[in-house]
Design a protein around this nucleic acid. Sequence first.
RNA 1: GGCGGUGUAGCUCAGUGGUAGAGCACGCGGCUCAUAACCGCGGCGUCGCUGGUUCGAUCCCAGCCACCGCCA
Length: 583
Amino acid sequence: MPERILVNVAWPYASGPRHLGHVAGFGVPSDIFARYHRLKGSQVLMVSGTDEHGTPILVAADREGSTPKEIADRYNRIIGDDLVKLGLSYDLFTRTTTPNHYEVVQQVFKDLYDKGYLIKQTTLAAFSAATGRTLPDRYIEGTCPICGFPEARGDQCDNCGNQLDPTDLIEPRSRIDGQPPVFKETEHFFLDLPAFGARLQEWLATKETYWRPNVINFTRNLLPELKPRPITRDLDWGVPIPLPGWEERDDKRIYVWFDAVLGYLSASIEWAKLRSRPDDWKLWWQNPAARHYYFMGKDNIVFHSVIWPVILLGHGLELPYDIVASEFLTMEGRKFSASRGVAILVNDFLSRYDPDPLRYFLTIAGPETQDTDFTWTEFVRRNNDELVANWGNLVNRTLVNAHRNFGEVPAAGDLTDRDRSVLDAVRAGYASVGGLIEQARFKAALAEAMRLSSIANTYLQDEQPWALVKTDKARAGTVLNIALRCVDALKVMFTPFLPFTSQRVHEMLGHEGFLAGPIEVREVPEDGATHRVLTGDYESWVRGWQAPDLRPGQKLQEPKALFKKLGDEVVEQELALMESRPA
RNA sequence: GGCGGUGUAGCUCAGUGGUAGAGCACGCGGCUCAUAACCGCGGCGUCGCUGGUUCGAUCCCAGCCACCGCCA
């Protein structure tokens, strides 16, 4: 019975283009996981989309005099293009501004309300004088009442470190327009997190053994201090509150975090509708045998390990099986941090370099368990000395020799112990690489595949088929047959990590069909409008997490290099380019 | 300020209560089908800092520092 795997990928926020850190955190790891499971024959559903509500998008819209929808439309398109170019194989990548999403969010809100899990409370809050919208604490600044620092924030003074309330500040002002905020009473709904404390505790106890330490420890410490969490805001951009007396109001909306996490569910429902099997989402969401994996950066842990599980418990859906949170990727030693406005953007990177080398770097040197740094020097080195020199070279030398001397897969004669042992060693990778991927240890998994590639290189070196061709062509054929089968086997193992080049190896070996095919971009009509989604016909792709059948006599294609060797000038050029960009 | 994570060779990471390992990088020699690999040899680290426990700590404990994140 194939496993049912739900891959829920954090929703990128549509307020700007995404940089390498974003796709290193949620993108590449989730795609490796999903591609592996599809190869293995699991029933995979991988969903995500752009997160398009909330204050930052409103602020961006005000700043440039456009509407929040225009901002969201623009970045939904740009981010979607990035993800396609990177080869992220979502079953559905959609957005939070669709009618389907609104409907699902409102249904769940209403359900939680009806069950008594939402508490109404009145609080004193800051509002923008100009727009009447909620002004989050971090958007307020003023003079610190304790140390006199003139640029203290509404939540904390960065000078003396004391925690503050926005009402403490002397001469408070909005960081958006400089105007003093208005403080007034406002009524909101809060999600009753404490009501679920015991059930969370119980659930978490079953996760101690396999969650990453950053996730489990962080979550464990949150539980004793659970407080009701506001679920609505004073805004006019977001999902309306589906209750009588509230639904019509222009100044109250559901808080963006609540609608964003519900995207996993709404996207699954949308996917099922698009397949004309509207109930198929339940095969994952209402199935205790299905395993739900969530992929995100570490800033998102609390939402996935506490708040979202509470919503799931309250509404009655399956809880996460694993929460895979990455650390952070810095760029060039923080000299060019996102907070300073300069980062390496995905679309910019992919306009000059291929996606697989980037996927390779972000996996082998990415922030899996600790913060790591992207440098151009390291990227060039890893590309040249590891990707090109090891795996790229193995494919190239094997295919060049086989194609030149045989033009097809040569037949194997009697196998020596050495022949058998290299084949066995490489094929053992299906267990070792696969096992590591299942544990979300992608860095170790890729290193293991590289180690096996290296074993095959050593085999070729020892057997020297290029010399045997002149003295014993039959034996040369046997050696190349073994080498080609190693390449064919490794190609499958590399597919989750390096889909584009694995597909090329697949074709050069004379195979047909898609091991890793195109991702489809589609305009979906809904209620008279359309929105763009990413999807794909992955069920038609070649499957099998096992050694493929490579028949003697199969015609080989003229081999071409898989990866480009990068010159040292790349480093200088890219650094100069980064310097030239205004912060 | 509270909480969590991280801090081990140039880079990325393993690891163990008995004075540290891997891959890549670097130096030398051999070989050459390949965008050169492979083989052999070689250097490389006060395992963040300071104390404590211990016969002995990089690994246990305490405090501190740095970086990242969350919360307030």
